[in-house]
Amino acid sequence: MKAQLEISSLSKAFGGNAVLDRVDLEVAACAVSAVIGPNGAGKTTLFNAISGFVPPDRGQITLEGVELVGMPPHRIAELGVGRTFQNLRLFPRLTVLENVLVALDRTERRQSRRRRQVQARALLERAGVSASPDTFASDLSFAEQKFVSLARALACGHRILLLDEPGSGLDPPSLERMYALVRSLAAEGRTILLIEHNLDVVRELAERVVFLDRGRALARGTPAQVFASPEAANSYFGGEPEP
């Protein structure tokens, strides 16, 4: 399988504390991959490095052969890297429609205003947002906000989508909606990388999994292989508590 995103020996330390330690990762095109690991494993730092918010100390990140390290976040977004955030980061005083338009204004800037509006509505529909597009984002329930943030990420993530804990805070029906959305996106050829605490979500969605602990990629393979690995088992299923 072709790798869309390649990360090689990526390292980052904060104040002498290694958060990412020579991480290698190949994200297959047109598939769902997942990074799992306990709190502080470096999952979010990995996402922040890919999307340009945290400059790594060493290592490469290439998207279809293009080096991303050193590029500012907006350039990386323009290359087609869309991401969501664990705490959503919607624009609270913009409407639902405007939240998506903010991204389309850049990625589809050559399109007419009217065309972008149509696209934004289509993306919201695609993400299953039922709230009126004219509602302020802050007036929505958490689950609805989450789907708006997915629609916004879709607006720029035509090469790869980075989903930060897509399952957190969702009730079972909303989780099912999210699964269906992610699966359909992968089916139509989107590359998706997600980080998750919830192993059920990973089991449902991911084809490839990397287990990250204290900045190091300790196991990789299919979900079943990784869950069965001693490293992950130790961390997730009742190993010794961490000091």
């Binding site: 976040p73 977004a77 991401r83 955030f85 919607l90 624009f91 338009l101 720029c156």
Partner: peptide, 24 residues
Amino acid sequence: SRLGRALQALNQDEVAAQAAGHNP
């Protein structure tokens, strides 16, 4: 306009605005 929308987005959440492709 989209410039106004981008400015408001930037003011409300700079990180999210950058992730949406805007140069602050």
